[in-house]
Structure formats: structure tokens, C-alpha cells
């Protein structure tokens, strides 16, 4: 990349971060509106949903973070095979530091040993960059900002699970997923969305569960078994009555996205990631010259 190209690429990355942090993607807005519509008038659930909708509007107009916890910064990237990978990651880190300076990201990354915060959001494990080369001649850059409150209520189960009474079958899988919702209560800033992986090892399970949030809210799982499970989980979780913020109400979950991976005969993990209502993810098609060509959500 020439200097001019680098500058443009950097600018595009900062814009992706700004848009992700301040504007809710349209598919998520539709899901939130749906949740607001089903809550009864004059309830605290409706009150919470109204405030959430107002917040989405103000953040966009003011170009300010939707939530002040701007979360873990997770990049999912496909890049043209001939890209200088080291330069690309260097520019991503630079963009994160620049976006932090501009206030699109909070100074949110702390050294786990010393407690020190260098104020840039750049350090070991931050930002998280998952990148794969591909044959196409453009970048596909997706970003997710995942808050701490909702990350804290994620859960990983190893089947069979005695406490929940869940065996090593689809029924057991369903039970632990619903258990995770009940355990979370309102603490993950619900109404939430679940990303779930059935199978895999512990690390891959959690990773793929987060990757599910890249799917559009209103898509349909191509696997009919998983598609059915996704619908059932949402319906049944919404019978728990936890509601927005845990105030009680009809909308506990807005969606569930599930993937299945092979597992070892000896292991049977179910990994559940919880995304709060402040579901921040965006993405862009970026040309090799570094310009944003199209928004993906």
C-alpha cells in the first residue's frame, strides 16, 4: 500500500468504528421495534423499550456512542491474498487508537496484571482480529463491539449437566440454552440475542457463538433442525417473563442464532454468548485502494 492508500484505509476503518459505535444496524432496530410493540402500555417493560428507542435516535443524531461501554472490539476480516498482513493489522490498531481519541470508543482496555489503562484500547488481545485471506479483490471488514455486562452472562455447558437435568441430546441442548437465559435475568441489558454453538472445543465454541451475531437478525438458518431450534428457544425464553432489563415483560429474547460443530465423542459443549440490546455490529466492503464501497448491514 502506498502512503495515500494507507491514509484512506485508515480513514475508512475509523469510519467503520464510528458507525458501529453510534448507529444501530437496521435489522436490529426492526427487532427492537417489534419488542417494543408487544409490550403493554404503561408497563415498566414498555417504558424501558421506549427509552432504548430514544437512545438509539439520540446517539445517531449526535454521533455519540450508543452505550458508554464500547465493549470488546472484535474484527472479522477477509482480505485480498496479496495484502501485506502486518501492515493491515498495524493500520487497524492505529484506527482503534484514533477512534478512541475521538471518543467513538471509551478508554476501555486494562492491563490484567497491573490494572493500568494506556488509554488507547490497543494492547494484548485488543482489538481482537480474526482475518482470513481470500481470492476476491476487496476487503470485507466487519466489526462487533460487545459490552462487558452481556459478556459476563455468557455461559458454557458440558453435557450431561446434572443441575439443569440436561442429557447429551437436542433436548439437553435446549434445556441448557434456556437455563442460560434464566440465569442471566436482566443483567446482560436485555432484551438480548443469543449466539450459540453446539459442539466444538471450548475455545472454538465460544468463538463461533460470537460469529453468529454477524448473521442478520431476520435471516433463516439453512439447517432446518437448527432453524426450528432457534425459533423454539425464542418462543420459550419469552415465556419466562424476565422482560427488558429484567423488569418483567414479554420480550426477554429478540433472537437466537445457532451453529453446530463436530465434537469429540468425549465432549459435548454448548457455548452461549449473550448480546445486549445495544447490539453493535457493522461492516463494509472496502476496495484495495482503501475506500468504503458499500455498507453490509
Amino acid at each position: 500500500m502506498k502512503a495515500k492508500q494507507q491514509a484512506l484505509f485508515l480513514e475508512s476503518l475509523v469510519e467503520i468504528i464510528r458507525k458501529t459505535s453510534t448507529e444501530m444496524p437496521a435489522d436490529v432496530v426492526r427487532a427492537i421495534e417489534k419488542g417494543r410493540a408487544v409490550e403493554a402500555e404503561s408497563t415498566s417493560a414498555k417504558y424501558a423499550m421506549n427509552i432504548i428507542c430514544d437512545n438509539i435516535g439520540i446517539a445517531k443524531v449526535k454521533s455519540q456512542p450508543l452505550c458508554q461501554d464500547t465493549g470488546t472490539i472484535l474484527f472479522f476480516i477477509h482480505y485480498p491474498a496479496k495484502t501485506d498482513y502486518e501492515l493491515m493489522t498495524k493500520l487497524i490498531k492505529k484506527a482503534v487508537a484514533a477512534a478512541t481519541k475521538k471518543g467513538y470508543l471509551r478508554q476501555n482496555s486494562v492491563d490484567s496484571l497491573t490494572g493500568e489503562n494506556n488509554g488507547t484500547n490497543v494492547g494484548p488481545g485488543s482489538p481482537v482480529i480474526h482475518a482470513e485471506p481470500w481470492k476476491k479483490d476487496f476487503f470485507d471488514i466487519r466489526l462487533m463491539l460487545k459490552g462487558g455486562g452481556c459478556e459476563n452472562v455468557g455461559a458454557q455447558y458440558s453435557l450431561p449437566d446434572g443441575r439443569v437435568g440436561a442429557g447429551r441430546d437436542l433436548l439437553g441442548v435446549k434445556k441448557v440454552i434456556l437455563d442460560a437465559v434464566q440465569q442471566a435475568q436482566g443483567k446482560g441489558c436485555g432484551p438480548g440475542v443469543l449466539g450459540v454453538t453446539i459442539g466444538g472445543d471450548r475455545g472454538t465454541g465460544y468463538f463461533v457463538s460470537k460469529e453468529q451475531f454477524l448473521r442478520k437478525m431476520d435471516d433463516k438458518n439453512p439447517n432446518p433442525v437448527l432453524a426450528k431450534l432457534e425459533d423454539e428457544i425464542v418462543q420459550e425464553a419469552n415465556r419466562l417473563g424476565i422482560g427488558p432489563m429484567g423488569f418483567g415483560g414479554k420480550t426477554t429474547l429478540m433472537g437466537t442464532k445457532i451453529a453446530a460443530l463436530n465434537r469429540l465423542p468425549a465432549s459435548f459443549f454448548v457455548s452461549v454468548s449473550y448480546m445486549c440490546w445495544a447490539f453493535r455490529r457493522q461492516g463494509a466492503k472496502v476496495s484495495v485502494q482503501g475506500a468504503i464501497q458499500k455498507w453490509l448491514y
Binding site: 427509552i51 437512545n55 450508543l66 461501554d69
Partner: peptide, 13 residues
């Protein structure tokens, strides 16, 4: 008193 988690902008106003 439970505020609405995440509603940073509404609350700031």
C-alpha cells in the same frame, strides 16, 4: 432505582 442499562445518551440529556 434501576436505570436503563446502556441508555447513555438519554440519561446524559
Amino acid at each position: 432505582l434501576h436505570a436503563i442499562g446502556g441508555a447513555a445518551q438519554v440519561l446524559a440529556e
